[in-house]
């Protein structure tokens, strides 16, 4: 996984609550069996006027120039500023792959849906929960026309922007994984002995759950 230590970038305000993963990457792109190729279709139904499908390139599409990601001053933005319950709905990790490939390294919101947030951590994208009032302050500045630059320091667990410094929470395990770009499966398999021991005693206790094992 790509490590995440610090990141500085322009924040683009996506002023909508409850943005769901069907919005982030519509289902027609889920037919792909690959992990890449989703960036051009991030927020597809909002970014383009015509209906998207696999194989269509942005050059063949009708761009919706009103959509915030298409506004010229936000080109190159790498921090997504979002409202509450961002990423609700489907468990599709394709949503994070699309955000990441588009160039987002972190998403800041007052709250995230559970599975989406997990998926972010697995892909080196940092979902940062700030207090409602802090997110509102960032939105107010961005919507008033200011270019909001944001500096994230994962080790210090801070987001700095303008004169403000906001702290955020993260579990030690996740922080460690991200800072070191750790292979989580590898880390789990390093505990293979514990898993085997557990499995052995669990099988004694609940033998009927192993009926299909030969």
């Amino acid at each position: 996984m790509t490590p995440f230590t610090t990141h500085t970038g322009l924040a683009v305000p996506l002023d909508r609550a409850n943005v769901d993963t069907d919005q982030i990457i519509p289902k027609q792109f889920l037919k792909s069996i690959r992990r890449t190729g989703f960036g051009d279709n991030l927020f597809d139904a909002w970014r383009y006027h015509d209906e998207g499908d696999m194989g269509k390139t942005p050059n063949d599409r009708e761009i919706n120039s009103d959509f915030i990601l298409n506004v010229p001053r936000y080109q190159g933005a790498s921090v997504l500023l979002a409202r509450e319950n961002f990423g609700c709905g489907s468990s599709r990790e394709h949503a994070v792959w699309a955000l990441s490939e588009f160039g987002f390294r972190c998403v800041i919101a007052p709250s995230f849906a559970d599975i989406f947030s997990n998926n972010c951590f697995k892909n080196g994208v940092l979902p940062i929960v700030l207090a409602e009032a802090e997110v509102v302050a960032l939105f107010d500045r961005a919507l008033a026309g200011e270019d909001v630059q944001v500096a994230v320091d994962l080790a210090a667990q801070t987001v700095s922007s303008g004169d403000a410094v906001y702290g955020f929470d993260i579990t030690e395990q996740r922080k460690h994984s991200l800072l070191n770009g750790l292979d989580e499966i590898g880390a789990t398999l390093a505990q293979a002995e514990s898993i085997k021991t557990f499995e052995g005693s669990y099988k004694q206790r609940r033998p009927w759950t192993f009926l299909r094992d030969v």
């Binding site: 990790e93 997990n118 998926n119 697995k122």
Partner: peptide
């Protein structure tokens, strides 16, 4: 429900 990385895990 889990994501694809977790499926792999």
């Amino acid at each position: 429900g889990i994501g694809t990385s977790e499926v792999e895990h």
